[in-house]
Amino acid sequence: MALLKVLLLLGLGVSVNSDVSLQKRILGGHNCADTERLYHVRLEGSNGTHTSLCGGSLIHPQWILTADTCWKSETGWFNVAMVKVHPRTAGRKLYRIHGRTGYSDPEGWLHDIMLLKIQKRVNDVPFAPLPDCSNRPKIGDTLQLAGEGATTTGPYNEQLSNAVAATQLQCVDMPVVEASHFLPTYGHVFSAKAQNKDVCYGDAGSAAVFNGKIYGVISPGVPRYACESAASVVDLCEYMDWIRRQIDFK
């Protein structure tokens, strides 16, 4: 998978008059402010010939929160984390991933949430503010989604899994349209959707923010065509006890 960004499309149809792959520019998202989302992490995987990109959030000096499907576990793949990717002037730093842990429930379902432990502590980046679960986002509340995913679509707004990633972290607002519920193979999720807005390949793992705190992780269930369905977000409040058991916040 690749890193996260939000897309705002000009319309739902693209005319194609040849077999050349026409791409329509994604509009509407904006550059995230230089003072926000400093905790955003870029996750990169490579096997020497292919690469994958995802987003994540630094929630502790050695722990990153992301989506489970962002981890490339196939033989020959190597995963790294890059912090201080936003703003672009921050001075990026690369960290080796020391370990990972995913969540599986008593029925054996592996949920789409993951914690990655990096080898060295990060001491010069603010951590993502964890949620106040007494004030969870409700239907109609506005989330801020963000990421570095692709900024183009193919013919008829088809999502491009190999499109070039955004040059700068993008933010966009989308209202919650579906309350938290359990979805097999994903876990506890809620959904956000707005006209002509969507998340893209590469945006998976990035944070969904409400009232300045992270309340979710963008799940990589990207439909074939942009704006086809709501964006799925793993509900972080359902996993806070598990996160605290894994991490020493002292």
Rank of each mutant, 00 (worst) to 15 (best):
H98Y: 15
T142S: 14
T89I: 08
F190M: 00
I218N: 01
K24H: 05
N196S: 12
G187T: 14
V125L: 02
Y239I: 12
F127I: 11
V6F: 08
K138L: 09
H50N: 12
Q62L: 04
Q23E: 15
F190Q: 04
Y156K: 12
A128F: 02
S104A: 08
D235Y: 02
N211E: 14
G13W: 13
L4M: 05
K117R: 07
Q170E: 13
L110M: 14
Q168G: 11
I26F: 14
G202R: 01
M82G: 05
T167Q: 10
D173H: 11
G56Q: 09
N123H: 10
V233W: 01
L3I: 06
V125C: 07
Q144M: 15
T35Q: 13
T167F: 07
I59M: 11
L183Y: 08
Y39G: 06
R25V: 00
A67Y: 02
A230T: 08
D124W: 01
R92S: 11
V125P: 00
N211A: 14
S229V: 10
A204M: 03
G154P: 00
F182S: 03
I64T: 10
E36D: 15
R88F: 13
Y156H: 12
R88Q: 15
R100W: 10
L27F: 10
L3N: 00
R37C: 14
